[in-house]
């Protein structure tokens, strides 16, 4: 009988895992697409930096379940389903990506940046050939932190009907079924560990360069 239960969990689990991965991947892609260019702009201008970091910081302080709740009644961008969940996940992932991009670029040795300018590099060349490559390990560290948290936070997305491994957890809590809770929690934790190790290895390789 137990094996029948496991069989069902596995079948449904595969689908939920894929949903979960899609949620994380799409959210992270959007967070990077916004966070990295914004970080580059913020590194270049103290004013942009203050505003961008403040906004991203505020997003970070909203409790995640509350944020998912807030978004439901908002027309167009909110509602029930995946796109609302992705929006919320992007809000959380943005700060680490943005902040590490800024830190990484500002952390480039002043002498190195100076000589890049003095060699006659255009601002674009300084960014592309010097600042971004030297900031890459720091930026990647931000992406890594954001990815790991997003994998965890994405379980809450099930609360607003976005699917993912959180479906097991919420159902398990509702029906006081430990097996269901673990069927959601364990794969989510493993996923986070794998992402952490994988991105960590990449980060190490880049910093050795």
């Amino acid at each position: 009988m137990l094996s029948d239960v496991l069989q069902d969990l596995l079948e449904e689990g595969g689908e939920l895992l894929v949903q979960h991965l899609v949620l994380v991947f799409v959210s992270m892609a959007i967070a990077c697409a916004i966070g990295i260019p914004l970080g580059i702009a913020a590194a270049a201008s103290p004013r942009t930096r203050r505003f961008a970091l403040a906004f991203a910081g505020i997003g970070q302080t909203i409790p995640s379940l509350a944020l998912f709740g807030f978004l439901i009644p908002i027309p167009f961008i909110g509602g029930i389903g995946e796109h609302t969940a992705i929006l919320a996940l992007v809000v959380y992932a943005l700060l680490p990506v943005l902040r590490n991009t800024v830190t990484g670029i500002l952390g480039v040795d002043a002498g190195v940046r100076d000589s890049a300018i003095a060699m006659g590099m255009t601002p674009r060349q300084v960014l592309r050939m010097v600042e971004l490559p030297l900031a890459a390990p720091t930026i990647l560290a931000g992406i890594r932190i954001a990815t790991v948290t997003t994998i965890g936070t994405a379980t809450i997305a099930a609360a607003i009907g976005a699917g993912g491994l959180g479906v097991f957890i919420f159902r398990g809590i509702a029906s006081i079924d430990k097996l269901q809770i673990l069927a959601g929690a364990i794969p989510a934790a493993l996923l986070a560990l794998i992402a952490d190790a994988g991105l960590g290895a990449l980060e190490k390789r880049w910093s050795v360069r």
């Binding site: 040795d109 002498g111 190195v112 100076d114 000589s115 003095a118 060699m119 006659g120 010097v130 030297l134």
Partner: peptide, 15 residues
């Protein structure tokens, strides 16, 4: 700048 060579302390080489 490309027509003027520039050397600083610690060389400022690109690591």
């Amino acid at each position: 700048r490309r027509s003027i060579g520039y050397v600083i302390q610690d060389a400022g080489l690109f690591p």
